[in-house]
Computed example of a mutant assay.
Amino acid sequence: MTDQPTAAQPEPQPESQPAPASPAAAPAAPVSVPPQAPVPDSVWARDAPVVPEAPAPAPAPAPAPAGDPADGLDAFYAPPAEAAAPAVDPEVRRARRRAAVRWGCAAAVFALAGTGTALAVTAPERTDIPGLATASDGRYTFPALTLPPLPAGQGVPQSPARTHHADLRYLVLPAPKEAGGARVPVPFPSPAAPTASASADATATAAPTPAATAPAPTAAAPATATPGFADWVPCDAFLAEQQGDAAKARMVLNRDVCVGATVREWTASDGTRTQIRLLRFDSTSESWDAYTWLRGKGRLKAVPDSDSASTKDWDTVEGVSLTALNGTKKGGAKNDPTGRIAYLSAGDVVGIVTMTNPGGVAAAPFRQVVTLQADLLS
Rank of each mutant, 00 (worst) to 15 (best):
R97V: 05
P90T: 00
A118L: 08
P90D: 00
R96H: 06
A113S: 14
F110Q: 04
I129Q: 15
T117K: 08
A118E: 07
R94T: 05
D128C: 10
L112E: 06
P151M: 02
G67V: 12
R97Q: 11
D137V: 14
A120S: 09
P65E: 13
G131F: 14
A84Y: 05
T115L: 15
G114Q: 11
P79D: 14
A87V: 00
A99T: 07
A123D: 00
A120I: 00
R102F: 12
L112V: 15
A81E: 00
R94A: 14
R102A: 15
P80I: 02
R96N: 08
P148Y: 00
P61W: 02
A66D: 05
V121F: 13
G67H: 10
A78C: 02
C105L: 15
T117M: 08
G114W: 04
G153C: 04
T117N: 07
V88P: 01
V88K: 05
T146W: 06
V121C: 10
V156T: 05
A108R: 10
D137Q: 15
A64N: 04
A87Q: 05
A123H: 06
T134H: 08
A60H: 07
V92F: 01
A100E: 04
G116F: 02
T117I: 06
Q158G: 12
T141H: 14
Y77N: 08
P124E: 03
A95D: 14
L119E: 10
E91S: 10
P157R: 02
S136D: 07
W103T: 12
L132I: 10
L150S: 09
P80V: 06
P157T: 06
T146K: 03
A64Y: 06
E82M: 05
T122P: 03
Q158F: 03
L119G: 14
R98K: 15
V109M: 05
P90E: 01
P90K: 07
